[in-house]
Amino acid sequence: MSDVVALGKAGVAIRKANDAGRGALIGYLPAGFPSYDGGVDGIKALIDGGVDVVEIGLPYSDPVMDGVTIQRATEVALAGGLRTRDVLSTVEKVAAYSDVPLLVMTYWNPVERYGVDRFAADFAAAGGAGLITPDLIPDEGAEWIAAADKYELDKVFLVSPSSTDARIAMTTANCRGFVYATAVMGVTGARDKPSDLAAPLVARVKSATGLPVGVGLGISNGDQAAGVAAFADAAIVGAALVKALQDGGPAGVRKLTEGLAEGVRREPRAPAVR
């Protein structure tokens, strides 16, 4: 497999940022929050604020990797009647608005219920770039991996500070787009202190793969994004943006995103090692 193929759509966008001497910024918002249209507007504000890759959450009834901010937002979305097809149409609307790669972050059961191949086909047709799968490990992911390869979608699996080197090697070998490194042992949500587990994890991942590495969990402001951009290829921000949308609407999202985008540009960095 050539580097270009393994980089996928998200990986190309991240490397473009890295080649410009900065870290990339990945922003998350769930579809359907605070309403269907409000969700679309929030995601457009992420793009206007300067994210390099968008991560759209597919709301799920049992989100075990999410802290209370994202739990509450996805509960609102589901209570508002959001369906899987509405997430796909959200993707379609945002894809018509911008060329920024759109990933969907989803727990596994909604995809399995929709039909893995059917979901991949409809998602690709809507303009989606790939999936981030927080509760699907490659060990259980044969069906998804086949569908992603068939429809040329990015496959972003997670690695954790607890992952063994052997698991990091296996997981990164199955990724396309980038590798999602969780900075802490814990769930999503803003945190005051930077994690001291993230940098060593990124170093371990980089010794296993040439793919870009994004770091997420706990990043909420430009200073933290700058800190992460010093050692990782991309900073991933979720709960803080959800809170910004809740408190300040699309304008609030845009303002926070601009601050984060400034953060990942703060320290000049060497081009990525290939």
């Binding site: 509760d135 259980e140 954790s160 500070p161 607890s162 992952s163 698991r167």
Partner: peptide, 19 residues
């Protein structure tokens, strides 16, 4: 791998796999 035929397995965050 914890499979009973097509059932069971591990659909868990990577953070918990090593534990």
């Amino acid at each position: 791998f914890g499979h009973f035929g097509r059932f069971g397995g591990r659909f868990m965050p990577e953070a918990l796999i090593a534990p």
